[in-house]
Simulated scan of single mutants.
Amino acid sequence: MADWSPTRYLRFADERSRSFRELVARVAELLAAREVTPSGVVDLGCGPGHLTGVLRSHWPDAAVTGVDSSPAMIATARELHDPGTTYIEGDIADYAAGRLSVTGADVVVSNAALQWVPEHRSLLPDLRDSARRVFAFQVPGNHDAPSHRLLREIAAREPYASALGAPVPRRATEDPGGYLDLLAGPGWGVDAWETTYTHVLHGPDPVLSWISATGAQPTLHALQDADPALRERFERDYGAALREAYPERPYGTPLEFRRVFVVAARG
């Protein structure tokens, strides 16, 4: 897949960052109750680095490392954000296997990234064990929402199906109870929950703009590679379906977005 676009991703930065802020706040509350101040924090799937300030606001003296597989995201993070943070281009699976030069993290967090990692469930015990104190993450739980269902349905039609060569996968994530089963064990306590946000988006075709920067991006890139005109046609068909599924209201376009949160803590 072509690289991610930091500019498109950041269009809805406030809405996308809310889950990260709430996840980190829960971690900070837990550590404060134990009178623990982390010295090292790792952000897996850090994107363009725009949320480093959230980590700094809670733990200003910690050594923070951001990890992302996107060269464009890492380049933006290094250029635009906290110079005291180390940014590493790397894969989450490589981090889980200890193949990246990142060690000694008290806290490991990941926001809306693990769903992109093949078989991410199998990596969770190693990711958990890489944290001396807390492993916390959030993943979207909306893969059966109209936005994603319509993406799969329209991509399965011709001429798109032939150009793509394979169905658009449903990137399955667990419910809170499933992650609890995977991560709970001797020496670990796990808090798992879900939240459905209702974001109010603005502008032309805002749901298409939202998902084009994330969930639909692999499909759009594949169609672009096959035929730019085919991508434009797909965006017209997909955009029309999204406008019907997410009608604009006088105050904007509401988008319901379910997210699953997990905080695993030692002791």
Rank of each mutant, 00 (worst) to 15 (best):
Y160H: 04
T198E: 13
A184H: 07
D205P: 04
G187Y: 10
L180W: 11
P218M: 07
A161D: 08
R128W: 06
A156H: 10
L220T: 13
V139N: 12
E194L: 10
G177M: 09
H202T: 15
V168T: 14
L208M: 07
W210M: 11
D205N: 14
A166W: 01
A172M: 03
S212Y: 09
R171Y: 13
P159S: 04
P125A: 10
A192L: 11
A184T: 11
A166H: 10
R171A: 13
L183K: 00
A145L: 07
G185H: 14
G141I: 08
H221S: 14
V134A: 09
R128S: 14
P218Q: 05
W188Y: 08
A156L: 08
G203Y: 03
G178V: 11
D175P: 02
P169H: 06
Y197A: 09
S130T: 07
N142S: 12
L180Y: 14
D129G: 08
I154D: 01
L201M: 03
V168M: 04
Q138V: 15
G165H: 05
W210H: 03
G177R: 14
R152A: 06
A216E: 03
Y160N: 02
P176I: 07
T196R: 12
R170H: 03
G187L: 02
S147C: 10
P204N: 10
Q217D: 13
P140D: 12
V207E: 07
L150Q: 04
Y197F: 15
A184V: 10
G185E: 12
P186E: 15
F135C: 12
Y179M: 05
A166Q: 11
G141S: 09
A166N: 00
D191E: 14
R128C: 13
N142W: 02
T195K: 15
T196G: 02
L127K: 01
P146V: 02
T195M: 12
L127S: 00
P204W: 08
W188F: 12
G189K: 13
P140M: 11
R170Q: 09
H148I: 13
D191T: 11
D126S: 13
P186A: 10
H143C: 04
A213P: 06
H143E: 11
A213R: 06
R157V: 00
A166V: 00
G189I: 13
D144H: 10
T214D: 05
Q138I: 12
S147Q: 06
T196A: 12
A145H: 14
L201K: 01
P159T: 09
R149A: 13
Y160R: 02
G203T: 10
P146G: 03
A213I: 09
I211K: 06
A145C: 03
L201H: 01
T219N: 03
W193L: 11
N142D: 12
D191G: 07
Y160F: 15
A213D: 02
P167Q: 04
A155S: 14
P206G: 07
V168N: 04
G141M: 09
T198L: 09
R128H: 06
R170N: 03
A161W: 00
G189A: 15
A155I: 01
